[in-house]
Simulated assay, not measured.
Amino acid sequence: MIANKSLSRLMAHVTPGRLLSLGFVLVALTGAQAQETAAPPPLAGGSQDEIKQFCTNIADAARDQRYLLQKQDLDKLQTEVNDRITVLEKRKTEYEDWLKKRNDFMKQAEAGLVDIYKTMKADSAAPQLQETNPILAAAIIMKLPAKQSGLIMAEMDPKKAGVIAAIMASAADPLTSKDPS
C-alpha cells in the first residue's frame, strides 16, 4: 500500500518528457545489467591451475596423435620405397640377363670376326677395321697374331691407328678394371 502511494506521488510529478527520459534510463540500466551477466566471471587462482592441468593433459594426447600421423606417413613412404626396390631388383635381374646374352653373343661374334680377319690380307683388313668402332677394332686386333696386327696397323690411317693403339694400351693397363660393372 505504501508502494502505491509512493508511485502515485511520483506519477503526479512525471511529465511526458520526464517519462521518456526515465524510459531511456531504464533501458540503459537493463542493457548494462545484461552485459554484466553475459561477461564471464574473472578467473580465480584455482581456475588457472585447472587450465594448466587441462592443457597438460591435452598436450600428451595431441603429441600422441601427431606421432601416430607421422608414423602412418612413414609407413606409407616405407611401403612406396619397398615397392620401388622390388621394381628395381626386377629390372636389375632383367638387365643382367640381357647383358649376359649380349656378352655371349659378342664373344661368339668376336670369335667369328677374329677368324675372318685372320684369313684376310692386311691391306684389305685395315680399311674395314678403321671404319668400325675403335673399341671393337682394338679388340679384334689384340686377338690376332702380333705379326698380322702390326701389318694391319701399318696399313691404317695414322690417326685412327693411334686411337686404336691407345685403347689397346689402356686395356693392357693393370690399373684398369676388368669388370665393366
Rank of each mutant, 00 (worst) to 15 (best):
P127W: 03
A137I: 01
Q72D: 02
K143M: 00
D104M: 10
E80R: 09
G150V: 00
S124H: 02
R63V: 14
F105P: 04
K100S: 11
I135H: 13
L99E: 14
L68H: 15
E96G: 08
D73K: 09
L113R: 00
T86I: 11
W98T: 15
L144C: 11
I51D: 04
K118A: 10
Q70W: 03
D60R: 08
I51S: 06
M156F: 01
G112L: 08
P127Q: 04
K107D: 10
T119N: 03
F105N: 15
T86H: 08
Q130C: 08
E110C: 07
G112E: 15
N103L: 14
L99P: 04
Y67G: 06
K92G: 06
P145V: 05
E155C: 01
A125I: 00
A138K: 00
E110Q: 12
M120N: 01
K121C: 00
K107M: 10
A137N: 10
V87I: 14
L144Y: 10
M142R: 09
Q148G: 02
A61E: 05
Q72P: 04
Y117H: 08
E89F: 10
R91Q: 13
D83T: 06
F54D: 12
I141G: 03
L69F: 11
Q78M: 07
A139N: 02
P145N: 03
K71F: 08
D83R: 03
D157N: 02
N57R: 09
D64I: 08
K92S: 11
M106A: 14
T86V: 07
L68A: 15
I58L: 10
A154Q: 11
A154H: 08
Q70A: 15
E96Y: 08
K71D: 13
R84I: 05
I116R: 06
A61H: 12
G112P: 07
L88V: 12
R91A: 09
L144M: 06
Y95R: 13
E94Y: 05
R84A: 08
Q148S: 09
T93M: 10
K159W: 10
T93L: 09
I140H: 06
L151P: 01
Q65D: 13
A161G: 15
Y95L: 12
L88F: 07
Q72V: 08
